[in-house]
Design a protein around this nucleic acid. Structure first.
Lengths: 293, 293
DNA sequence: CTAATATAATAGATTTTATCTATGATGGAA
DNA sequence: TTCCATCATAGATAAAATCTATTATATTAG
């Protein structure tokens, strides 16, 4: 006994006509005939009398109709409830590191929202380290993250964007005209760190440490606007994405002698069902990416 | 959502282990994995957290487990009830014309009963005309009948036995040594008719009528024993099957000049579900027939 | 009564689905 | 580490559902 067979049977009862029933089910008449036959075979019972090409329920058929009706109602209810739990959300929980939230994400978000206005995005602005964990614990559906370490087996990754950190100073700064700087050139340079638990900072600080340099950190901020302001005023330098430096006329971005590449990815958990909303975001990101290339 | 998928899901919940669940279902582990995945796809919901290759129900999974449990119970109950209605009967309702009931059927019945002792046969001893109707109205599952008319589209037929009517008289009767008799030779002959609504009598009487002969019917009886007694006593002649005449030393069967063939068939209704019991009888009859040839 | 229309069953082809085999990845135990 | 247990995935194969085309029979209209 299969749910589909019950549906076929019920349609035949409703229309008292196999052909009509088949139409209502959007399948062909022989399929319905054979479903009825299969049920009869399985039960060892005639569900219908075949009187002159007309189908009339037998006693057994009446019984089955009544019971299977109740059953189907419950099946449909359960199915609807489960689907409600799932697809009714129209919500993606996505982790976005602060720096990306002000720089890359707004444009992506606008484009996504234009395509899927019904889907809301709940942004969790945390650094990559934290969002990674939240994705693994399924508290987030997706995250945009700066990926530095070896491949994490638990996560799928989709490259969004690659760039480098550059050292940003005021346009008139002595370092501004240099083709590149080494970290050792920055021993005395006051620096503003972009405050984040992201792997970006981890990489940077480990680089300093490996050169045995204690960077002169003037302050830390999570506000890009604040950092830019300090840099433009010549009060300090900062490590920012190449693209952010390029956008500001008052700020010069000087490449590092030993570049610090930043790979920005969309990540999500392996072996986990991806809700249709999240799947849409992933697909969207792929095509958005293609378009950008 | 399919019943089989629910069963797979429940097994996984019971064993908390896909492999074990698959074993209990007598299918392979990937089948079960994919059923779970399909449900998750359909609902847009994670039923399990995949934590270190261990499956732990999500909130949605708990909900589904609870509800689908109730559902499956009802499915199983209904299925069992329907099967009870069908296969639990162990009963075949079969129509048997009186003459066959005393001559051909006993041996068949014994052989069938030996093979299927659990199946009871409910005999309805009526002539072919009536049993034909009862088969069509589904009051009988099967009937043994003498088939004379053109093929009846509503019925399946399976030949059991073919014979002829012969005119039976006492061994010393003047006609007994004849190679054949014509109906016209029987004008004055007292006759006992085998009382039945069967087509046998219809054929016989129409033959007489077409020759414009009024047969001298001494009496009618439905008891073969009575008829034989009268014939053996030389009180009357009777039209009986060849085989019945051959069995009695005191009775001689004289073939008719224009033979009246008797085709004895098993009949059942087309386009009707054949209960397994009835199907067994049909199969049995086929092989019984083969064996007899 | 005959012709046209409608219905359901059947046979056989085709597509879809289910299941299997084989393999790979990962976590935990020895 | 190495081995075992476990689940996911890919691709092949088996099974089932569905389709197309046809047949037989009823019903209806002319």
């Amino acid at each position: 006994m299969k749910i589909s067979q019950i549906r076929h049977f019920q349609a035949v009862c409703r229309y008292k006509n196999v052909t009509r029933a088949a139409e209502s089910l959007h399948i062909t008449q022989p399929s319905v005939s054979s479903s009825i036959k299969e049920l009869e075979e399985e039960f060892g019972v005639n569900l219908f009398h075949r009187i002159n090409k007309r189908l009339v329920l037998t006693r057994e058929g009446e019984f089955f109709l009544e019971r299977s009706n109740l059953l189907l109602e419950q099946v449909d209810t359960l199915e609807a409830q489960m689907k409600d739990l799932g697809s009714g959300k129209n919500l993606i929980r996505i982790g976005v590191p602060p720096m990306i939230g002000t720089f890359l994400f707004p444009a992506m978000f606008d484009a996504f929202h234009e395509k899927y206005p019904e889907i809301k995005l709940e942004m969790v602005e945390q650094g990559s380290r934290i969002t990674n964990k939240l994705v693994k614990s399924e508290e987030l559906d997706l995250a945009i993250a700066i990926v530095d370490e070896a491949v994490d087996h638990e996560l799928h990754k989709l490259d969004i964007f690659s760039t480098c950190l550059v050292f940003c100073v005021r346009s008139g700064h002595p370092l501004a005209c240099r083709d590149s700087v080494g970290l050792q050139d920055l021993r005395q340079e006051p620096i503003i760190l972009f405050k984040s638990d992201s792997s970006q900072n981890a990489i940077l600080l480990s680089r300093f440490k490996s050169l045995d340099i204690e960077p002169n950190v003037l302050l830390s901020s999570s506000q890009l606007y604040t950092i830019k302001h300090f840099v433009a005023a010549g009060r300090a330098g900062a490590f920012l994405f190449q693209e952010i430096a390029d956008m500001e006329p008052d700020i010069a971005g000087v490449p590092l002698e030993e570049p610090i590449p930043m790979d920005i990815c969309l990540i999500w958990k392996k072996n986990r069902h991806i809700y249709s909303d999240a799947a849409k975001f992933i697909e969207f990101t792929k095509s958005y990416n293609e378009g950008a290339k």
